[in-house]
Design a protein around this nucleic acid. Structure first.
Length: 486
RNA sequence: GGGGCGCUAGCUCAAUGGUUAGAGCUGCGGACUUUUAAUCCGUAGGUUCCGGGUUCGAGUCCCGGGCGCCCUACCA
């Protein structure tokens, strides 16, 4: 650090700017590479360029210096500085003052070296940004903590980190494209809410000084998106952050990115199809394939139609006895106890059935599957099933043994909705801090006539996980980390 | 929440309770006009995560704390 600071000062002393702006850059490394895909060794093209990049390797010999410059997109090119073309003073400055990690500008002719490496033979060089801290040694894996805490370093030295960051960009762009093509409007709804609703989760609480009230960071945008549909924005979506004050592990982050979309007059099967298409289009544009290979050897096949299984039927089959929405709570408790499945003491029968499902069936769900028709008592915002008793028109999408999305035929009857929410509110009063509170304004919106609609929530981070096989903290560029000692 | 493992030089890692905590790469000085993780010679580099304790002696053992990873549970 101290030595590099001295070099920074030396640059100024020799009349060079250590952080130069307005450099005469004429092209990119990628463009030079693309223009000269397969030159023979030891060729001079006569083409003059000005390029800049970060020094990633250096090989300084006596009168001829080599450096590998890398751009953010991972493309690299070699810079060569010879005594003959830059002169003694510039060559000496280069050897004295350039370190691995510096951004440098090089202007000169595009050539290939005697070993065939595409290079720029410099006529001049300039410092673009003097790096004061050394880069970690290349070719040795950084430990996971440093990668997450200093993602900027991770991105410099590990091309895979770049790739993941760019895959996320591509997935988000693809999702927005797919939604737009189907007539959905991207809208923004409140992150700061006076009541949290739309999901069952513990919220983060903050305080507004101006209004002198406590506010919640949203756990879901659902109730506002539905209000927008009431208002005649017939198809809406939002891709943005939700915040849940709960556990963090390989598949959960306190802030995570969620896609929600709602479309009037569609039902849960219609939106399931759209969800599958979204996924397939995102996979195609982000990784170029509907077959995904994970580092752990898992292979996901996202192609074609995705199968549907019935929650209670598949559970009954797995257990070997019939389980229905009418199966008494006591019996489900007994089945859970047999398998040492833990559950919350106040859990309702439907919740227990879902616990059993997670234990028996979920571990087998690698390729995408829509799990259909959930118990009514765990789904307060979903419409009752049109033919089956005790269940609602809801699916969960499982990919790679992970819940990756959920879709409903939304409940739009304000009278039934009020009954369900009152029931939830009484749960909240009894100490279930994840139950929903009564949102009178939401009910008021419904009472103005909410069109029948299908709605979906898809975890975008989990999309990235499915497409890369990585943990959630690798798919998020800057995940929350506890402050360290220093 | 419970259990396990880890934290030592810029990075990746060594070090039976016992000399002055080592190695590779990085860095620094030098040689070299075709190198590719360049090579060769020389050299520097430490609050062993923090705080206590046991001991003649602690990176190592004990207690407390911090941070991370894995497993497990919880979180519809």
């Amino acid at each position: 650090m101290r030595i590099r600071r001295d070099k920074r000062d030396q640059l100024a002393a020799r009349g060079m700017e250590p952080y130069a702006i307005g450099l005469p850059i004429t092209t990119t490394i990628a463009a030079v590479r693309a223009a000269h895909p397969d030159l023979e060794a030891d060729v001079a093209t006569g083409e003059k360029v000005g390029i800049a990049g970060r020094v990633i390797f250096q090989r300084n010999t006596g009168k001829l210096c080599f450096a590998t410059l890398r751009a953010g997109d991972g493309t690299e090119i070699q810079a060569m500085l010879s005594l003959a073309s830059v002169g003694e003073e510039a060559l000496q400055s280069w050897k004295d003052l350039v370190d691995i990690g510096d951004h440098v500008f090089v202007a000169g002719e595009v050539i290939t070296s005697k070993r065939g490496e595409l290079s720029v033979m410099a006529d001049e060089w300039r410092m673009a940004s003097k790096s004061l801290r050394p880069l970690p040694v290349a070719h040795k894996p950084l430990n996971e903590e440093t990668r997450v805490r200093q993602r900027y370093v991770d991105l410099i030295v590990r091309p895979e980190a770049q790739k993941v960051a760019r895959t996320r960009v591509e997935v988000l762009a693809s999702v927005r494209r797919s939604m737009s093509e189907r007539g959905f409007l991207e809208i923004e709804t409140p992150m700061l809410q006076t009541l949290h609703g739309g999901a069952a989760a513990r919220p983060f609480v903050t305080h507004s000084n101006a209004f002198d009230i406590d506010l919640f960071l949203r756990i879901a945008p659902e109730l506002f998106l539905k209000r927008a549909v009431v208002g005649g924005l017939e198809r809406v979506f939002e891709v943005n952050r939700n915040f849940r004050n709960e556990g963090a592990d390989r598949t959960h982050s306190p802030e995570f990115t969620m896609l929600e979309f709602y479309a009037q007059y569609l039902d849960y099967r219609d939106v399931a199809r759209i969800t599958r298409e979204l996924y397939q289009e995102a996979a195609q544009s982000a990784i170029g394939s509907l077959t995904v290979d994970h580092p752990d050897g898992t292979v996901l096949d996202l192609s074609g139609e995705w199968p549907e299984i019935d929650l209670f039927e598949s559970l009954s089959e797995a257990i070997g006895e019939e389980i229905t929405p009418e199966t008494p709570r006591e019996h489900l408790v007994m089945l859970c106890d047999q398998q040492d499945i833990a559950f919350h003491p106040t859990a309702v029968a439907g919740k227990l059935a879902e616990e059993l499902f997670e234990h028996y069936v979920v571990p087998t769900l690698v390729n995408p599957v829509f799990v259909m028709d959930y118990p009514v008592d765990t789904s307060p915002l979903v419409r009752g099933h049109r033919t089956k008793a005790g269940v609602v028109e809801k699916w969960d999408l499982y990919i790679n043994r992970m819940e990756s999305g959920t879709g409903y035929s939304e409940l739009v009857d304000p009278v039934i909705q009020r009954e369900r929410l009152v029931e939830q509110a009484s749960l909240a009063d009894r100490g279930d801090d994840e139950a929903m509170h009564l949102d009178e304004d939401f009910l008021r919106a419904m009472e103005h006539g909410m069109p029948p609609m299908g709605g979906v929530g898809v975890g975008v981070d989990r999309m990235l996980m499915a497409l890369t096989g990585l943990g959630i903290r690798e798919t998020i560029l800057f995940p929350l980390v506890k402050p360290g000692q220093s």
